[in-house]
Design a protein around this nucleic acid. Sequence first.
DNA 1: TTGCGAATGTTATAATGTTGCAAACCTAGC
DNA 2: GCTAGGTTTGCAACATTATAACATTCGCAA
Lengths: 163, 163
Amino acid sequence: MSASALPYRPHNHDTCVSDALADAREICQQKNVRLTATRERVLELIWQSHKPLGAYDVLAELASEGHNAAPPTVYRALDFLQQHGLVHRIASLNAFTGCAHTGEKHTGMFLICRACGNVLELTDTHVSTAIHNAADAEAFRVENITLEVSGLCPRCLAEKNHE
Amino acid sequence: MSASALPYRPHNHDTCVSDALADAREICQQKNVRLTATRERVLELIWQSHKPLGAYDVLAELASEGHNAAPPTVYRALDFLQQHGLVHRIASLNAFTGCAHTGEKHTGMFLICRACGNVLELTDTHVSTAIHNAADAEAFRVENITLEVSGLCPRCLAEKNHE
DNA sequence: TTGCGAATGTTATAATGTTGCAAACCTAGC
DNA sequence: GCTAGGTTTGCAACATTATAACATTCGCAA
Ligand SMILES: [Zn+2]
Ligand SMILES: [Zn+2]
Ligand SMILES: [Zn+2]
Ligand SMILES: [Zn+2]
């Protein structure tokens, strides 16, 4: 199993979070854009776990911290983070997850476990080329790919088989 | 260009609709489920064009025909049609489109033109196997694939180049 | 024909996302 | 330091998408 399969294994998640934040700071500095307190906090909340978080979940967390936030606050922060490749929106869940490949140019493929809710982001050249080939065959110019696979992760699959 | 690229070309769309309805009737008869008047009308509305239709668009059409419909009416009809593989939900658009491969076991890959709004549903073995291989490599059991590609269709691409 | 499950009607509400405008806040140039 | 201009945030209202709960009607079959 690859190192990127972390979400489906016990791991020191604190490093996931701190790495993500460090990456974000660096990327924003390089791009000369502002990773404000709100934006950073939203990113940190998104990274709380590998389960995608809805915008209103984020909002609730902020509210519970005493942050006087309304929906636009969260959506704007999420837009910013998406724009700069720090989070992805999972269309099939209306939720957001931290990007596991910041910086790299990539087309996320998301494995979404319907049992535990964890999401693993992959990058796979074969998948990517196959999609581009199929689109090319129709003379279609690809701009954005949404690829979300739902099913059972190895852990939940094993549990299920124990029953 | 394949015959399935119809949405991006001028074509006799009436046959799209009548074929879809004929298929639907046959499939429902085979499965011994009821393609009621509302369900059939919703399917027909969805097939009005190759642009996905939102649930509330369908609702509005029904209303304009004097049908006294509320959201659940539409969502239930759409659920039914999805259940039996007659329509697909496009997650990235919150909209529905007629299935172009009824009957066949398939994983829809949708090419969505951001300019004209038309959607082409493809089935591609290479894409499908590549996705399954990638998932297998993580020991993930695939149950459902959402693959939506947005960009520019050949027609809109040509128009754009003329400018 | 009457009973039962499937389908629909109806009302209300939840969940998700957006618009518009005003205030606060950087930051660069003077 | 000041100040002008752009960026970010606060805030209120609103728009869109989807579901819950319960009553009623419909279609079919014993
Ligand atoms: Zn982690
Ligand atoms: Zn990513
Ligand atoms: Zn057509
Ligand atoms: Zn299909």
